[in-house]
């Protein structure tokens, strides 16, 4: 299927504008995506495309940036990573299992009645999850509290808060943005998963966010735009805060559904409550060709 054909089937996708021309996905990125798809298929449901846009961001955080102890998840000296867009949890669970916070076999139980892994992440249930999210717009306030706590306790922990772009429609995000810059929280980094689609369709139609870089800058953040699927660029931009005395905002330009061509940019894949055998087979086939 050519990109033009793909677009024709998808609601308003021509409106989302240019998407990043990322380097090809490497073997690790593809393998992580396969773990997400396995969990989705075993549960028969989930927010797959919202997770796939996040894979490289989370991979770089957990591989290269965050300080943590998988066998001591609440170690006080750790960096905190809050997935404020909790519906992207398939990606977070994949990375946490990959790092040994819990057994990979747990992923097979995703969304089952007794599983610790539900459709949104929960603190206290899932080792490594810092906050129970799912209701949107909550992660930044919590992250600010953690960043202030680190300052009072004289810890050098960094706090990362990953939001969706649809999520930042919430007013609470902008209350938090004012608060973070007032307190000059340079130990706080907000990462916006800028995949330009929300549940109903393109963000430009539902609630236009542009000029997004200028907005965060106006709210007192040091801002960088980055290709959210380019591992090297992410490593370099996330390695340290962008500026002293200011919170950092990294706008990660991503593709919703990245790596599975036929679901990329397709709002119909935002959330699936049923995945047929044919659909599952198509997901695996597309991953083979990624």
């Amino acid at each position: 299927m050519s990109p033009a054909q793909t677009s024709a089937k998808k609601i308003g996708v021509e409106k989302i504008g240019p998407t990043p021309v990322s380097p090809p996905l490497d073997a690790r990125s593809t393998a992580l995506r396969k773990v997400c798809v396995d969990a989705l298929v075993s549960a028969g449901r989930g927010h797959l495309s919202s997770a796939l846009s996040l894979i490289e961001v989370l991979r770089v955080l957990y591989d290269d940036v965050l300080r943590f102890r998988a066998d001591e998840p609440m170690w006080a000296g750790r960096d905190r990573c809050i997935l404020s867009k909790g519906h992207g949890c398939l990606a977070l669970f994949t990375l946490l299992a990959d790092k040994g916070f819990f057994a990979k076999s747990e992923l097979e139980t995703y969304c089952q009645v007794d599983s610790m892994l539900g459709g949104h992440p929960e603190r206290g249930k899932v080792p490594g999850v810092e906050a129970s999210t799912g209701a949107l717009g909550h992660g930044l306030g919590i992250g600010i509290g953690m960043a202030l706590a680190a300052r009072i306790q004289k810890r050098d922990s960094r706090v990362f808060v990953i939001t969706g772009d649809g999520e930042i429609n919430e007013g609470s995000i902008w209350e938090g943005a004012m608060c973070a810059s007032k307190h000059r929280l340079d130990n706080l980094t907000v990462i916006v998963d800028r995949n330009k689609l929300q549940s109903y369709g393109p963000t430009i139609d539902v609630q236009d966010l542009e000029p997004l870089t200028d907005k965060w800058r106006a709210f007192g953040f040091a801002v960088a735009d980055v290709d959210g699927h380019d591992v090297n660029s992410l490593r370099s931009v996330l390695a340290r805060p962008l500026a002293a005395g200011k919170p950092t905002c990294v706008i990660a330009h991503t593709v919703k559904g990245k790596g599975i061509a036929h679901i990329e940019h397709d709002p119909n894949w935002h959330h699936k409550s049923k995945v047929s055998d044919d659909e599952a087979a198509a997901l695996y086939a597309a991953l083979e060709n990624a």
Partner: peptide
């Protein structure tokens, strides 16, 4: 923190999670 009750509660939660 100004007239921003949503953020205030979130912030209090984050502080409490880290021992306050």
């Amino acid at each position: 923190e100004g007239v921003s009750e949503q953020n205030i509660i979130g912030m209090a939660a984050g502080l409490a999670m880290d021992g306050f």
